[in-house]
Design a protein around this nucleic acid. Structure first.
Lengths: 140, 140
DNA sequence: TTACTTATTAATAAAAATTATTAAAAAGGA
DNA sequence: TCCTTTTTAATAATTTTTATTAATAAGTAA
């Protein structure tokens, strides 16, 4: 609780219970979409509105607290901002796992960016496939 | 025209005018979202319905003709399927440029995948920032 | 070509997702 | 505690996407 409070304040946002609950849910599960977040938060905070969840997710994304993870064929998920990492996304069950490793060839990237005069601000690497769980089930 | 016809047929889809027009628009611009595609296609094919555009984009995505490019804070774009590449996405103007280069460290990726027992099927690398056009304008 | 069979389209309609509005409530600082 | 400002909740309104189905068009084979 204290932790999320300071994250919010450090990023210039008021630490409301709604926001902290939203962050707790996302932190607990890693990646969640708006509906999933609402469904969890409403359990402990029955008066919260879905619009409030939308608005807070937007504000926290704009203020570097959350990061949107757009996905092929699914609703976007949100995660708490953290250092560069890779997403392993299962096309079967939709699970997302973080790998805390930077797989991008930084030198080649820098060259591409400088050739294009492109000012870098962030990246996302998504790897799609089938997780171990789903591939073992699929032996049917 | 001939080209897109064979792409469709090679992937087991009938080559209708609607589909070929959609592919032409995407091919012309590189990346387009559903509304943009509809707006272009309707110019030369006034009777087409938005639902038809949605359905065909879905079918062509499912049949490896198109690839969805989900984006942070924007509607997903679609591109014609091609080899592994990187997207340079401008946060200012929304432009997307392809770089035909594979920046991912393949050996490290293989190691991650084998550790996790994750069956690879595809990847997407998006780099966000400011394109040369927008950064030169922003000297204001 | 023509007739036939099947898949696709267009036009709704319906559902789902997202954003806007505003009075009431809550947060943070004096 | 009081005051000012921001945020919430509860709609309402949009926007986006999907479903339905009769009409149409595509591909196939005679």
């Amino acid at each position: 609780m204290k932790n999320y409070m300071s994250i919010l304040k450090d990023n210039g946002l008021k630490a409301t219970f709604q926001r902290m609950h939203i962050l707790e849910v996302i932190g607990m599960y890693g990646h969640k979409d708006v509906d999933e977040i609402y469904a969890e938060v409403v359990k402990t905070h029955p008066s919260i509105s879905l619009a409030t969840v939308y608005k807070n997710i937007l504000i926290m994304s704009q203020n570097n607290v959350l990061v949107e993870v757009p996905l092929i064929g699914r609703k976007a998920k949100f995660e708490i901002k953290k250092d560069c990492h890779v997403h392993l996304i299962c096309k079967e069950c939709g699970s997302i796992e973080d790998e805390d490793i930077d797989l991008v060839d930084i030198n080649s990237l820098k060259e591409v960016l400088s050739n294009k005069n492109f000012l870098y601000s962030g990246q996302e690497l998504n790897v799609y496939g089938t997780c171990s769980n789903c591939s073992s089930i699929k032996v049917s």
